[in-house]
Design a protein around this nucleic acid. Structure first.
Ligand code: MN
Ligand code: MN
Ligand code: ZN
Ligand code: ZN
Lengths: 133, 133
DNA sequence: GCTACAAACGATATTCAGTATCAATAACCG
DNA sequence: CGGTTATTGATACTGAATATCGTTTGTAGC
C-alpha cells in the first residue's frame, strides 16, 4: 500500500482492493483470477494496476511453459521461478550460483547482458504423489 | 524436410514452403513474418506448422522481454537464447556450465526439475555502436 | 498411373489477452 | 470544501491464436 504513495500514485479503492487480494496469495496468479475475485473492478483497471505493480517491483511476471503469462508477488529483489507443469503452482528461489553464472557467462556472450530470465519447470512434490489430476 | 517423413507427417506444399523459408533465416522470426512471406498460405496453417515443427524440435520458442513469442531454428539439441532488447535479434548459445548448474540446483528445489528456460537479455554489439535505433 | 481415404488445407468465425478512447468520477492539495 | 487532474469503467478495438468445416491433396495400395 505504501507502494502507491512512494511512487506518487493515488491510493484508489480498486488499487487497494487488488493489492489486498495479492497480499494473501501464496501461489502465482493470472490477471483473470484477480478480475474474477473483483467483479466490480473494470478489466482495464486490473491490467493497468498489474502493469503499475510490475513497474514498482511489487510483483513479477513469469511465463508458463507454453508462454502464458502469470504473476507472483516478489518477496525479494531478484529471483527466479519454479512452475509445476502439472498443477501450475509457482515458487520462487534465489541462488547465488545462478547470478555468479550469469556474470561468468558475459565473457562468452557477445554484447552486454542487461538482464536474464530463468524459469525451472518442475513436477512439485504434491503432484508427484498424485499421478492424476 | 526429412523431419516430416520421420514423424509421419505429409510433405505438403505449404509445409515445404515454410520450411524452405525457415532454412534461410538466420535471426529469430515470428509467426507473422512467415505469414507475410507466404501470402498464399492460410494463417491457420502457419500456426499449425509452427506447432508441428516445435514438437519435432526443428525450431524452438523463446519469449521476448515483454513475453511476446518468437521462434528460432534449433541448430542444436538444447540451448538458450540471447535477445537484444534494442533490435530484437536472437542468438543461441550453449554452456555446459548452465546445465551443470541446473543439476546442482535440483538439491535446493522441491520437486523434480523437468525442464528449464533461460533467456539472456542483451544489448548486442551492433546496437551498442548505434545509440539510436 | 489410378483410386480411395485420411490428413491437411484455407476461409471463416470465434476466443482470449491486452490496449485505446473517452465521458464520468474521485483523490488529493490547498 | 472546491478545483484540478489522475484514475476509472464501459465500450470498442486490436492482434495472436484456435475451432469449425467443407474442400483439397498426399500417399499407400493396387
Ligand atoms: Mn517472483
Ligand atoms: Mn533456439
Ligand atoms: Zn504441482
Ligand atoms: Zn541489437
Amino acid at each position: 500500500m505504501a507502494v502507491l504513495e512512494d511512487e506518487g500514485y493515488r491510493a484508489t479503492a480498486p488499487r487497494r482492493a487488488i493489492i489486498n487480494i495479492l497480499a494473501e496469495k501464496q501461489e502465482g496468479f493470472t490477471a483473470e483470477e484477480i478480475g474474477n475475485e473483483l467483479p466490480a473492478v473494470g478489466r482495464a483497471t486490473i491490467f493497468r494496476t498489474i502493469k503499475l505493480l510490475l513497474k514498482a517491483g511489487v510483483i513479477c511476471r513469469l511465463n508458463l511453459m507454453d508462454g502464458a503469462p502469470k504473476y507472483s508477488l516478489s518477496s525479494v529483489e531478484h529471483h527466479h521461478h519454479t512452475v509445476c507443469v502439472r498443477c501450475g503452482n509457482v515458487g520462487e528461489f534465489r541462488a547465488a550460483t545462478v547470478e555468479r553464472l550469469m556474470r561468468g557467462l558475459s565473457d562468452d556472450i557477445p554484447g552486454n547482458i542487461v538482464g536474464h530470465r530463468l524459469e525451472l519447470y518442475i513436477v512439485c512434490d504434491r503432484c508427484t504423489g498424485n499421478p492424476d489430476d
